[in-house]
Design a protein around this nucleic acid. Sequence first.
DNA 1: TATTAGCACTCTGTTGTATTGAGTGCTAAT
DNA 2: ATTAGCACTCAATACAACAGAGTGCTAATA
Lengths: 353, 353
Amino acid sequence: MPFERLSERKKLILRAIIDDYIHSAEPVGSRSISKRHELSLSSATIRNEMADLEEMGYLEQPHTSAGRVPSDKGYRFYVDQLMEPRIPSTEEMESIRNALEGTISELSQFIRNASNVVSKVTRYTSLASAPLSKKKSLKTVQVVYIDSGKALVVGITNTGMVKNVLVKVSNILTPDMLLRVSNFLNEHLSGRTLDRIDFDLLKKSGDAIGLDYNLITPIIKGVTDCINLADDSEVFFDGATNIFNYPEFSDTVRAKEFLSMLDEKEVIQKILFSDDSNRPINIKIGRENEFEEVKDCTVVLTSYRIGNSIKGTFGIIGPTRMEYSKVISSIHYIRKKLDQEIRKLIGDIVDEE
Amino acid sequence: MPFERLSERKKLILRAIIDDYIHSAEPVGSRSISKRHELSLSSATIRNEMADLEEMGYLEQPHTSAGRVPSDKGYRFYVDQLMEPRIPSTEEMESIRNALEGTISELSQFIRNASNVVSKVTRYTSLASAPLSKKKSLKTVQVVYIDSGKALVVGITNTGMVKNVLVKVSNILTPDMLLRVSNFLNEHLSGRTLDRIDFDLLKKSGDAIGLDYNLITPIIKGVTDCINLADDSEVFFDGATNIFNYPEFSDTVRAKEFLSMLDEKEVIQKILFSDDSNRPINIKIGRENEFEEVKDCTVVLTSYRIGNSIKGTFGIIGPTRMEYSKVISSIHYIRKKLDQEIRKLIGDIVDEE
DNA sequence: TATTAGCACTCTGTTGTATTGAGTGCTAAT
DNA sequence: ATTAGCACTCAATACAACAGAGTGCTAATA
């Protein structure tokens, strides 16, 4: 992004405008800047500067006799060079710690919690994906006896994701036999990446453990189902109704658009997986997002890694007019806490590739 | 609900009004009824009848010079005695079958799918709870080796719900030892109802399998976590944005109220668990719901049972001005299909207690 | 030369007023 | 018992007037 050289004064004015606009959501005029901020410049001077800033693309004017509104470029400059960094308030930090520390021990639930507290603290909508691995492999398969004729196939991937499938099996299969099947499957499957499992071969070799082909088939089917489930990447969001706090979504059409977008799992996936940078926090403002759907939203993402191949992403989405410094400080803190907690829980977290 | 005796003519008029209103969402006037429906009565006559119906509580008037709008009582009468039953269109049936038949073999995912198709077909918001048992017991516990120092505790309840918890364990625990722990735990836990497990005793008897107290403790902790997770009843919804299709939610305040309500798990629980009747389909119109939050919504619920103690509920929520006949026919059909599919999958579905 | 006061102009949003039209209730005629 | 007719009510719409916030430009000022 090519930023032309801005005079100190222009920077100050731009920052004042954006600060104001972030809090008021109203186009800001020259007079209010000249009064509220101690620049000791007249409104006329400010006006001239504003006209310049508009010409350079940092500001926009909804209509001739209105004040100015920051453009995507304006926000970008603000985020990169103007805004004051902050640290979260003590209440914020406390509620984050409360949500993340101690109690939770199930990973995906843990991420859900993180997602929840992110949306609570920032008052925007949070997005998150469950920990996800590029090369997903099967760690263990368990076949569990449930009832006569019913069994549960439980598959566990190297990412710690657990999927389970209920299957109907022959009545003659006893818990013991299922255990044998379990062991057999484990022997043949565990450690394999999901796409390199030869199920046909597997079925045929069933009689290796003295069980008929037909007895095993539904179980194998269960395993494949399990794998298919595990392949779906889980994404979720929280605090969707937060958008009603912001006037840019005050008409139902816009609100509906936003909420409908969230209903599409694929869109959330696209957004989350677009966090390809190596920066700890990745901010995409308005049209910087490659998706039409979020053209006037800002997305703030962060990713964590567990070991080498497991990756999870979470963050927030809101209007481009966003409290950047607040959001960034919160996300930073949450990321740090999350990191600590996961490390406590299972160790081995790596930040960058 | 005390219904006074209504003349045939009053019934016809009431039905005409409600039919109209359901489709137009506008207060209906006497003239439009006298014209559109072949009652061959003048608007003046209709007016008199309408005044009567209002006095009896079946209709309401937003303001003096407006048409009439059905009251909760009016809708109730309509549902019980007036509306024409229908069968779902072939397209509807097809999409329902497509969504439910065959592919899915994991129960909670299956219910999710059902919930999804309900909201798609009815165009209202669907609610659902995962299969839930009054007396929940632990079917099996598995402790799975993940990595050195990491294990996964997987608990399976009699309802087929699977919960898992990642735990950090001592490095010296081998997969084999974990298997021994698994077996030990199973022996002592399986079949017990969740509230009748003595964990202290359990820990002490750890050395029965030659393992130190301290090695087992984190695993026991994992099991209790697991149980706590399983105790939470899962509820979810789908198609929340459908409410934007209905003018009664066209202002953001109302829409926000509705969506915020859905964000509260407890509210959904309350709604779903209020399906205590034995009827196959349970309809609660407006203030018939005991919760203030849904005082101008209608909830249509249905429950299915698996075996004797497992119960799940799903249904839809929408404005009281609802296409009752369409919704009811759809839910009937979905319920039937769901029933068939679960039976195919695991058998033993019982409709009533 | 940079700043600012001053002014004409633009555009939105609000307020007040008139009008329209759908609908009602009542009365008297059929 | 039904209906035509009429006066009345009320919300919604349209329109004009006006206020106010803001701009750009010009000329005066430091």
